[in-house]
Structure formats: C-alpha cells, structure tokens
Write a protein that binds this DNA or RNA. Structure first.
Lengths: 255, 255
DNA sequence: CGAACCCTTGATACGCTTCAACAAGAGTGG
DNA sequence: CCACTCTTGTTGAAGCGTATCAAGGGTTCG
C-alpha cells in the first residue's frame, strides 16, 4: 500500500523541435542548482539564454560513457540513474531501453546537477546516465558558460561551490564504502533523510534503487530492514519507514 | 632490498616564524596544481603573495575534522595521509603523533592538492590529515583567493578544472569500490601507475599504504600479489613490481 | 486468467577480515 | 660483536558479511 507514484506517466512523445524550447526554467531551479543566495537578474538571463531542455522517456539514455562532454547537465524533473552499462552482448540485445543490463550506482532526483564536472575537462563522460522515469534534462553548453563566467565572476564562485560540494559528497560516500558495513550505511542514510526532528521517512524510490545507492543487493537491504525492525529501531510499512529510536540509530551509524 | 627512502629525514625543527616564509614556491609546483598550461606572470605573483608554507614533521597533524577551513591546502613535498582518527580514547593517549589510531584512506604525494574543496563551503574540514613523513604544506587563504579570482577570470576556470578532476577521480574511486573486487582494483592500480609502455613499477609507498588506498588489509594485498605472481602476470621483488603481461592485467582490471 | 513486476525469505558460496604466529631487516645499547 | 626490540611483510586457520541462486507471495495490467 501507498506506493510512490512511479512509472505512471507514459512518455508524452511531444514532437517539440528539441532545440528551441521557449518555456522558461523557473528561478527555483536555478537556486537549487547554484545554492540558496538567489542569483542576480542578469545572471539568470544569461543562464536562461544558454539553457536547453531535453525530455527523456523512461529508460532513455541521457548520455553514455565516452560521449563528448560539451554541456553541464542537470535533472529538471524526474529521476536519472548514474552508473555503467554492463555491455550485455556486443551485437544487439535491443529490448525496451537500449543496450545491455544497466548497473545503477546513484540516482539523481528533482532539480539537481547530473554532471557538472566532465564538461570542464578534455575527456568525455565517464559514466552512463539513464532515465529511471520520464524526466526532463537541462543542458548548458560549456562554451557559453565560459563567456558567462567571465562576465559574472560571482557566478564563478557559485559553480566552484557546487563542485566543492560534489567533492565533499563523494568523499563522504567513498569513506562510507571503505569504513562502514551495510547496516551502518543504511542507518546513516535513514538519518540523513529523516525530517529534522525526524520520525517518518517516505521512500521516493524503489527499494532496489535504494539498495543500489547503498551498494548492496535488494536481498540484503530487505534482510537489514527486517533486522532493524525486529531490534525495535524502525517500523517498516511498505514504502514508509518510521524511525523509532533516533539515538540508537545514530550510535549505530557512527560507531 | 631497495626500500623506498622513507623515515630517513628527522624533523629539522627549524625555528622559522612560520608566517613569513620568503622562499619562493617554484613555478613547477603551481603548474602541477593548476594544470599544464603555465599560468601568466601576474597570476603567479598573486599566488606567490598569498602562499604560506608550513612544515610538518612525520606524524604531525595537518588538520582535523571540524577545523575551520579557511585555506586551500596542497602538499609541496613529502606525503600526507587523508583519513579519519578512530578516536582511540576520549581522554589522552598522547603518544608520539597525537590522538588515537589513524585510519588511512588516501595518500597524497609530492606537489598535489590536499584539500581544495572544504574552504569554499561554510563547513569545516570533513577529514583528518596527517603527515606520513616529513612534509611541507602550501596554504592559500580563501579570502585572498576570492580577490585573485575576481581579478583573473582565467584562473577561475583553472580551479574549476581542478575540482572537476577531483570529482572525476572520486567518482572513479567510488565506482571501483562498488563494482570491482580487490583483485580488479589492484590490477587497475598497477596499470595506472605503470610507465606508458610499461614494465616496471617502483613503489613509492609502504605496502600497507597501498593496501589502504585499495581499501583492503595488508594481508589481503600480500595474498593477491602472490596470486598474480604465481599466475605469471607480475614479478614482485621487494618494493619493485614488474608487469609481465599487460594484456592479461587489462582484461582482469576491466572484466 | 496469465504475465510481468517487486519484494521477501532461505540455503549456500565466496571474498575478505581478523587473529595469531613467524621471518627478515633496521636501529639501539650493552 | 651480539642480544634486544620495533617495524614490515608474509602465511595459515577461522569467522563474518554479502552476494548469489532459487523459490514463493503480493500487485498491477492486459
């Protein structure tokens, strides 16, 4: 009961010419991407002019490893998975999505950067990205961004901060993978997502996607949830998890 | 035989006033930090004025988690370990180095950034850093850097590229941790460090540090090396490893 | 209804860690 | 010089943590 509303919307298949999308990107999105202090009006104008929106239907590929990376990419709406294609067979399996089996590593929701690092380097993309549900992408050509950054040094620092935050997040993720076992990572994840004074967590994703984020199999996640539940720390009901003992979870996550 | 020259130099204990170090940082260092196209003369001057050098003796702490982060930090010479202090006892063990046991996660050599991300965010450092041998640190106050970046937009993009590269590296590391087993990671590491047409690799670090980088125990590393050796892929003699079969290693690393 | 999902549960297998013991230098002091 | 200790790397045996494989139940949808 109470599943997250996923896979409901079928691909609208709108025949928009793809290049000239005149619908403006809301300011809230830019704020989500560049950080809370709202950008100046002319900075927003500049970004608005550069921005290109691309719609993806569920399972569609956003970019592949090795693709030339000449744009910063963000997810406007929906969810896009970052990971690697396990190159099923070299010839052509070609079922619904695309190539071989997709090995999910990280899921990017709502308004958030998908890849703001590849474009600054000579090399192409280093990962595959695939829509996990119908999604809209925001693309900013790096050549245009260079011009914009020269004109607005403030925005430069904003981007620097975005990348710095990415570095911090990834460092934390790597640390967790090296130092914590699956149970600790799960506890950490639950606490991070809990409402501040926190009691109830509603999963926005499938459990198998959560498992992928924690770098474990769905089976192990199921067992861990049961384990925490029978220890009285949480209460699981479908896609809603109630945290019963924050203190114990915290000591479990950090110990 | 042929150990790397480590732990040889005793702390010189030079009583330099620490703040005013007039010895100029060589240009090669700046190039190593900011990327190959050499910086312009006045950019170098600006950096030179900001730069502060700090000497660390072996085991000394560069910074601790939670410290206020108001400088970009790079390692000039020597090696500094990034990781976390496993808070041995809350009171005071206080033996040679500092607090409790240090859990190494990543080792930073020679001229290379140690932490160029924390300073751009409000929060403090998110990791501990400790000299693994006598080392010299380069510190750039972020407040001064902001001024410098406003004056030289080109340098802004350079820094952006540095951070983007960090993101790529960390993403790769996380991917390896999630998708590859220890043997694959070792093979990957050996190939990355091999000379281009590659045959011989001289370890610059202790094997236990290599193990830490690969996120395995020294025991496992030893077993893996023996395994690869008896498979005829490499030849280990002390701290020198000869790669005998690049093709096989490559297929092992990627498969 | 059957098909296609998703999640769960159990049995088993494998990778890696942990603990303990030991060999081989390097530094130290008698 | 030797005995002593400290450190590093190696090897073996035992055990934990997850993955893997297989089976079954619950939905949703055609």
């Amino acid at each position: 009961m109470s599943l997250p509303i996923l896979d409901k919307v079928l691909t609208p298949a709108v025949p928009i010419p793809a290049a000239a999308a005149p619908l403006p990107v809301p300011v809230s999105v830019w704020t989500a991407l560049f950080g809370p202090p709202r950008l100046a009006a002319d900075e927003l104008r500049g970004l608005q002019e550069l921005a290109r929106v691309r719609s993806l239907c569920s399972g569609a590929c956003a970019f592949k490893r090795g693709d030339p990376a000449d744009t910063l990419v963000a997810v406007l709406e929906g969810t896009v998975g970052l990971g690697s294609h396990a190159s099923g067979s070299a010839t052509a399996p070609a079922m619904p999505g695309q190539g071989g089996q997709f090995q999910l590593e990280r899921a990017i929701h709502g308004p958030q950067w998908l890849d703001n690092s590849s474009a600054w380097l000579e090399k192409g993309r280093t990962q595959d990205a695939q829509a996990l549900m119908p999604a809209r992408l925001l693309e900013l050509p790096v050549s245009g961004m260079r011009v914009l950054l020269n004109r607005h040094p403030v925005m430069s620092e904003r981007l620097l901060q975005c990348l710095a935050q990415s570095v911090q997040n990834l460092t934390g993720a790597a640390h967790d993978l090296m130092a914590k076992d699956a149970q600790k990572r799960l506890a950490t994840w639950l606490l991070q997502r809990s409402p501040a004074s926190g009691e109830e967590v509603a999963l926005r994703e499938r459990k198998r996607e959560l498992a992928a984020q924690l770098a474990i199999t769905p089976e192990t996640l199921s067992r861990l949830l049961r384990q925490l539940m029978s220890a009285g720390l949480i209460e699981v009901r479908g896609y809603s998890i109630k945290l019963l003992n924050l203190a114990a979870l915290q000591s479990l996550a950090q110990g």
